[in-house]
Design a protein around this nucleic acid. Structure first.
Lengths: 326, 326
DNA sequence: TTTATGTGTGTAACCGGTTCCACATTTCGA
DNA sequence: TCGAAATGTGGAACCGGTTACACACATAAA
């Protein structure tokens, strides 16, 4: 491995000068600079980030903690974060938490041990003291906390939108799948939808769910039609659950959207590929990831930022599980 | 930040003793050990990995380079790697290369600068000197190189399997979508399929493709049916392309699988959710990721390993885009 | 009793950078 | 012309760990 000493020797100067030269700090004579640059090129030198990080007590690494990259919503988020960081020369240490507090704890611990300068986390416990005790900036992604920096979309508005579109398209007996109670955005959506249904005086039912896994979603879909066979509109807690509902409806011989309309949330890539393609409330996942990255970088570089809570727009994506309206 | 000095002071011993204690190296008196352990607990001390890494010239970090986490095949791979590493206390620095040599180069560079102890890469250029020059172990994932460690599945066998199943189910005029020429597994599949078609003397055609993006896949699907409207079996280069073919076939009013059968590759989560659900040649992506992690760890810890090239099984997953056979 | 061996602990060098400080030289304004 | 300020450079301390080495003491073997 070629070190700064090798460069110094090759250029005939001290390591201090080489350091000043590559970091562009302090005075360096033009001739000296040239000698150093030549030496760097000749030896193909790249500074050891670990040594830097040790002295400066900060690295160019950030920690990214997501529940499960295997859930099709998160790759978009992750990619957005990565692109935002990559463009600013930050690298990512990545972990899946499985929404497990222990794992979350462990990852945050190792992030710290590796001198990360910031953390982006999609946690269900943003107010946990795991985060409060951190003395580096944290951005909560797709999650909100009372006053910590965050990037999220307006779940309540999304829920309202779903209910409004469903009512406008003629559903009269709506079933709402209530997402996991510990996941804040899921509850916001649920609240929003219920608000609108109440306001409109529509007949509706609720099915409780507790995860976003497809296997479990299938059983809730069964439960839904077992309890409310005559439902003519389903607001699912996300696109995965909506997909399971769609399948179950088809299995029961129901026509979608004629007999029953279905609306999901997220607009994961899968949604547009189903038959019929899934109408959904879109969250701009990639952009959210990117915004989170940029917000975190501002926090790292400026210490504080005025707009610390970035709310991203949701929108209704009309596809084929809802009826057309003029 | 709590350092080893704080612990030493609190326990009334030297830093060397603390170090020996937490690393379980050298002699430490039982009483001393107790004092140190108490101090560690009292101060909630965790060693700075950066300082360790600097002295030892190696970290507990590995680099993971994938083409694009947004492509639904890769999250499975990534998750497998993560789980394998997590279980062995290694952490992951993650990057998307977009199959772009420059980005790949940059990431490998920063991996090195961060003292990673190993790299897992799904690159299209395993024989590039980017990798040859590395003096840490590298495992190629879902890619093969002449003699470097790798974890991959038998693309040729997969291709043969696809063609055999399609023939066995009665297709007579088969079209094979040839995946991107620079992606080795795609070419292996293609070779395998063509071999069987030749052996069986079946009438077949080839459509060239150059990426796995859905948007482009749609245009190849159109091209396919424009050129060979009477085709009654399509072997796609992966599930994304197969999905596009399925959509186009349906748009043209063809019945699947009665008029045309479709087989994909990979068995991404999407495949089982389509209607009709997609028959495909499965690669065990999660397991491949995990195997790659374990292989890399063996290489890191033992320096060398006998079985450096791990081939994972492929299998035909029979769903509804192929006809049933007794 | 002497010597070899095994235990137990601290001091200091080291990893590869960054930066404070001292010092030398040049430039510039009065 | 002279002193102050600007420019340019190197030595050495420092970041937070690990480990080679020296040394003290206890125990066992001769």
């Amino acid at each position: 491995m070629v070190t700064i000493k090798d460069v110094a020797r090759h250029a005939g100067v001290s390591v201090a000068t080489v350091s000043r030269c590559i970091n562009e700090t302090g005075y360096v004579h033009a001739d000296t600079r040239k000698k150093v640059e030549d030496a760097v090129r000749a030896l193909n030198y790249a500074p050891n980030e670990v040594a830097r990080s040790l002295y400066k007590r900060k690295s160019r690494l950030i920690g990214l903690l997501l529940p499960d990259i295997t859930n099709p919503y998160f790759p978009q988020l992750a990619r957005g974060v990565e692109d935002g960081m990559q463009a600013n020369e930050f690298r990512i240490i990545f972990g899946n938490s499985d929404e497990n507090e222990q794992k979350e704890q462990e990852y945050i611990q190792t992030f710290i041990q590796n001198n990360v300068v910031g953390v982006i986390s999609s946690t269900n416990r943003p107010d946990s003291d795991i985060y409060a005790k951190l003395n580096i900036p944290v951005v909560f992604l797709d999650r909100t906390s009372s006053d910590s920096p965050s990037v999220y979309s307006d779940g309540r508005k999304g829920g309202r939108l779903a209910a409004q579109e469903m009512i406008a398209r003629g559903s009269k007996r709506i079933t709402v799948l209530r997402g996991p109670v510990h996941i804040r955005p899921a509850q916001d959506r649920f609240q929003g939808a219920v608000e609108v249904l109440e306001e409109a005086g529509i007949d509706y039912h609720i099915i409780q769910t507790s995860s976003f896994s497809f296997a479990e979603a299938e059983s809730w879909a069964k439960e839904l039609f077992a309890k409310h066979l005559d439902t003519d509109g389903v607001i699912a807690s996300n696109d995965i659950v909506a997909t399971a509902v769609l399948h179950e409806a088809q299995r029961l011989g129901k026509r979608v959207p004629e007999d029953v309309q279905v609306i999901g949330f997220d607009d994961i890539p899968l949604s547009s590929l189903l038959s019929p393609s899934l109408s959904t409330i879109r969250q701009p996942a990639y952009d959210m990831g990117k915004e989170a990255a940029l917000l975190l970088i501002r926090l790292i570089e400026q210490g504080t930022v005025d707009n610390r809570n970035i709310q991203m727009p949701v929108s209704f994506i009309e596809r084929d599980t809802t009826r057309k309206v003029d």
